[in-house]
Structure formats: structure tokens, C-alpha cells
Design a binder for these strands. Sequence first.
DNA 1: TATTTTTTATGAATTTATTCCTATTTCAGG
DNA 2: CCTGAAATAGGAATAAATTCATAAAAAATA
Lengths: 200, 200
Amino acid sequence: MFSHNEIWSAIDKLAQANGYSTSGLAKKAGLDPTTFNKSKRVTADGKPRWPSTESISKSLAATQATLMDLVGFIEDTPIQSTAQAIEHFEVSQNGIKKLNQKPLASLVVTQDDSYAVTLTSAQWAPTYKKGTTLLVSPKTDLQTDDKLFVETANNDIFIMSFDSQDDDTLSLNAIILNEPDRRIQKTDIIRCAKILWASQ
Amino acid sequence: MFSHNEIWSAIDKLAQANGYSTSGLAKKAGLDPTTFNKSKRVTADGKPRWPSTESISKSLAATQATLMDLVGFIEDTPIQSTAQAIEHFEVSQNGIKKLNQKPLASLVVTQDDSYAVTLTSAQWAPTYKKGTTLLVSPKTDLQTDDKLFVETANNDIFIMSFDSQDDDTLSLNAIILNEPDRRIQKTDIIRCAKILWASQ
DNA sequence: TATTTTTTATGAATTTATTCCTATTTCAGG
DNA sequence: CCTGAAATAGGAATAAATTCATAAAAAATA
């Protein structure tokens, strides 16, 4: 379920995240530039007007975004967890480092082998927006396009999709713009977990 | 981005996953039952017709599904790729029974030992309200006050907190009003999982 | 098997969203 | 300060989706 307000807000955010104005996004999508006007979001007598599914599909295509990305722009309630926070990370220009204070991402571990990671940075938006909680599992039966949460020996963190692997290296594809694909030495990996579930 | 075919397929799957026919879903959503007819998906001259965003929103609301859930029916998301719907349950005055149609609770199982249970009954409110998704694990290292999801041989379901156990029986405390505490024979239990995580 | 209910189908009427057109506003560059 | 491009606004025309009305097929029930 999503509200009239949420879907319009998501369209605004989709445009902004790709450097477009609202009308610019409409043009890029091959639509009339006034399609997403504020004045087209309610009728004269105040009834809500919704964008069409086709317009949304075209807008996502124009920004090479998925429906999943759009979900990332729609706010929802945070999850509650039975787990306990044990580690914190900081995101900076040089990468992501473990630390104790002012965490931009917090990692919580449950009592079995699955655990949750809460992102307090917009680093991985729009795929995983700030505030997203990921439920991940360290299980190793990886399939192509599985999303992974990987931590290396020097405490860098990568959230990328699984491409392939051999005995020594793990090949990962970027899931956000302007991030390169990567090949990581397995000996450098201290944590590799498959993302099973992502909250809003 | 998503295609005309994908969005219609997703609506069909949303209906099916909730035990509805396509027209049944439309009715539940407060729409005309013919809204999602095959004949409404293309024009007379073969042009594709798309469901409106508002119809989709109403359909998700009717099934207590999120946009994320719909994505699961379209793309290879973590939820879809690692989970498979296997069983449905119905809650009635006399208890909870397994069935095939119109489930009030749906159970999905992931590829590792944790799985998710979505409650579509208010049976366990206010602790777990209608629509809550529980992430549970069959791990047996139980501690007092752990919340458990228990299914017995006659397909009754209990969501209660762990009190104690001996070789033969499991003692459970109620977590909702007007429910008695219980002692269950272990030989009667066909599923016992610890609730690790609860969604909104 | 007969009967009722549900589902599916299709055309026409209605409602809704987009497009077209024009005008105003905003903002960067000369 | 002026100008041109982009963004926004709003009404009318057009295109598109839903509803309504009806009928036929399929499924459930007696």
C-alpha cells in the first residue's frame, strides 16, 4: 500500500536523485513536461489525482531505476528488532570504517546466524535508502544478482550484487550510480552476507 | 522500470498469493470486479492498457501488502529469490487450521534455516498486530521469554513465550489477554521456531 | 444433475490522466 | 537590467482507465 502523497513524493525524489526537475523528468520519460505539475496532482475541487502506472514505468526507465528504487523513495515505518547493537561504522570519502561513535550504519546481530544491518547513511541510495534495515545471512550458496553485504580486512564495507566467484576472488557489480564494479580477494574478506530482506 | 506484462502478472500473483481470483482481488480492493479482466489489459486495436496507480494502491491495501511485496512479484528481489510460499493457515473460533485458500496467515520459507511468517489475522494483537511479519528460526537454544511460533500435529498454531521445558513437554506463557498458558507434548509439535524479528 | 455463485467477457458511459496550448515565474548569462 | 531557457501553472481537448450493464462460461453447492 502507498498513499497519494507518497507516490508523488517518490516521483519528486526520483527526479531530484537523478538531477532533474520534476518537469525535466517528465520530458526525459517522453511525457508532456506538465504531466507531473503540482497542479495536476489534485482536481479543481480537491480530489487527489494519481500518476498513471505507465508514466511511472516510463520515468523509471528514463532514470534506469527499478521499482525497487522507487520503493526506496517511499517512506515507511522503521522495523523493530529483537537484536542488540554490537558494532558501528562510519562512512567517509575514503570509505567506510568501523568506529564507536556517531555511527552512520549500525550492525545488530541476532541469536542465530542471520543478523540485521541498519543503514544510517544515504551512501547506497536509491537502492537502499538511509534508514533501511537489511536482514542478512552469512550463508554461502550465492546466486548471480544476490545482493551482498561485504566487509574487508581494512574495514571497508561494500553493498553490491554478486556476479561470480572463483577460488580466490569475489566479483561484485555496483548497485548504485558512479560506483565501479569490483573484484575482491577472498582472503581480504572478513564478512560476507547475503541480503535476504530489506526494510523500507 | 517494469513492463506492461510484468505489472499485470504481478497483479495476478498478488491475487493468487492471497487466495483471491483476479476479479476477487478487484472486489476486495473496492473496485469494479471487471477492472482487472484480461479484456481490459489491451484495447480493441491491440494497444496495451495499464492498471492505474490508484487501483494498485487499493489492491495492495486490500491484501495488506506493501509496494515492496509487489516488487517481489516482479523482480528477483531478496524476498522472492530466497523464499517460496508453501503453506497457508486459517484462523477461526475453534483454532487455526491449515488450508489452501484465502489464508489469514501466510508462511514463506527461505533457503537457510530462518523463515518469515506473515500474520493476516488480528489473533495475536496487540503484541503482534495484523499484518506483522515475523522472522523466525527453528534454532533450539531457547531462553525464558523467547517468543515462539509453534505448530502442533493437528495444525493448531500458537504464538507464545517460552517458559521452560523438560524431555517430554514444552511450557508456554500467553502473550495475549484471555489466552491460557499451555503445556504441549513435544511429540505433538511439528514446528517450533523462535521469533527473531517482528516487522511493524 | 440442477441450481446458485463466481469468474470472465465485452461494449458503452463515465471518470480520470495526459496532452496541448498559452501564460507566468524563476534563474542564469550577457 | 535585460534576455532567453527552463520550470511551473491552469484551462480545454484528447486519450486512457474504470465503471456500468449485461451475458456467457466456469466453479461450487445442493
